[in-house]
Computed example of a mutant assay.
Amino acid sequence: MTDRTVIDLFCGAGGLSEGFRQAGYHVLAGNDFFDAAGATFVATHPEARFLPGPIQDHSVQSILKVAGLKRGELNVLVGGPPCQGFSVYNHQRGLHDARSSLYHEYLRVVAGLKPQWVVLENVTGMTSAGGGGAVTGIVEGLGALGYNVSAKILRAEEYGVPQERRRLVFIGNRIGVPIEFPKPTHGVNLEPFVTIEDAISDLPRLKNGEGYEVSSYETSPTSSYQKAMRNGQNGVTNHAAAKLSKVNLDRLHHIPQGGSWRDIPIDLLPEGMKKAKRSDHTKRYGRLTWKGLASTILTKCDPHWGAYFHPDQDRTLTVREAARLQSFPDSFEFKGSRTEQYVQVGNAVPPLLGRAIAERILQMTNSVGYLEAAE
């Protein structure tokens, strides 16, 4: 019996599998249809095989062959089916969106691989889209395959991620182990939240539109988080600032740390926002504050979407800064165009959240001696 093995479906750049790897798992394979994400996964998971293209194109037998496993031997199957169909940012969301039915493919692979554990994550909007039909479908579908499943919304910041981020996580197993979710490590009466300052203040300063393929750190780490993210690296990649237009720079000059569009003179606001209520669009054109948490990192750090201006530099966040705020180590070099890099970072599960889930699964299995019995 093979233990501590993981296969990652809809893996993207590999945030979830990176978390499991940090917890001591062996990543055997990953699949995604997004070529740039696949290139990142290949570069950052040299021990794993990458299966390109839609999951529909891959039979269970081909996945087993690539992973070198027999049915029932895989320890954990993880995955996050594309979430745009459920996202609160998709105002036409619902089960009619073709992307919303990809969890059926996850169930197909579960039925064929018969892993001991399953982990599936998605945006919280899945609980309401289509009347929560996808959540019911996943729980009932896995139940029909012999899995006991629980679902819970986890807050990434409670596990050391310097960002306000909510994810719906399903955990299940077919080996009779009671399911428990990872206990928060950060928050009230716990470790303090990791701030933006803790996360990115050591990265090289940049002007608007400035950046290089590889940058040296220039300063020593000032927090344990920065030291962990560097993990022995000599410098950073993906650290280039997008070039803001003159009107956006003019707007930005009026915005203090923690400020937003409300601080911009009305004559400088975009036409569509000049008549907005003060209670609307609360984080648009927001400037982050060193002592706070980041807003949810989305698939582009567009100031019209939220608070993505650097705390004290007149520019938006770089891909590297967004990756740091997602808890990706600096060893991850994101491939593809800059637009594709932002998409990979924004779609990812924060590795530290993945690690907390992986470590909890290990604790649950060890508590009943299952892993020892399997050896």
Rank of each mutant, 00 (worst) to 15 (best):
R166E: 14
K283S: 12
H253A: 15
V76P: 03
Y25F: 15
I297A: 00
E121T: 12
R99D: 00
Y342M: 05
Q313N: 01
R262V: 14
G187H: 01
T296W: 04
R174T: 11
E105H: 05
S128K: 14
Y225W: 04
A228M: 07
D32A: 14
D250Q: 11
A23H: 11
T299D: 04
T296V: 11
G12A: 00
E372K: 01
S367K: 09
G141Q: 10
E321T: 03
T289Q: 08
D267H: 12
V236W: 00
E180C: 11
D202L: 10
K291W: 00
F10V: 10
R324I: 13
P311Y: 00
E164M: 06
S367A: 13
A36W: 04
N75E: 15
V42G: 07
G125C: 06
H253T: 15
R108L: 05
A151K: 03
R71D: 13
H26K: 12
T219W: 00
G176R: 09
G187Q: 08
F181L: 06
E321L: 06
D302C: 09
I7H: 00
E333C: 13
L145H: 06
L107V: 10
I171W: 07
N122R: 00
D3G: 13
L317N: 02
A374M: 15
A348C: 13
G68E: 02
D202E: 09
Y212V: 15
R167N: 01
R324K: 09
G346F: 07
K207G: 15
D202H: 09
V343E: 06
R338I: 14
R230Y: 04
F309S: 09
S59W: 11
P81G: 12
G146C: 10
V119A: 05
N366D: 15
E180F: 10
Y217S: 08
I357W: 09
D302N: 03
T289A: 14
D250K: 04
P265L: 05
I264Q: 03
P81E: 11
W305K: 08
L252Y: 00
G12Q: 07
K227G: 10
S201W: 02
R287L: 14
V88P: 10
T222Q: 13
S101Q: 10
S245V: 12
S327D: 03
K246P: 11
A37E: 05
G85K: 06
K274I: 15
V88D: 02
T40M: 08
E197W: 06
A323Q: 02
L203M: 03
A134Q: 06
F10D: 01
L154T: 05
F170Q: 02
T127G: 03
A276L: 09
L353I: 10
S201P: 00
G68V: 13
Y225N: 04
A39G: 11
R251T: 08
R4L: 14
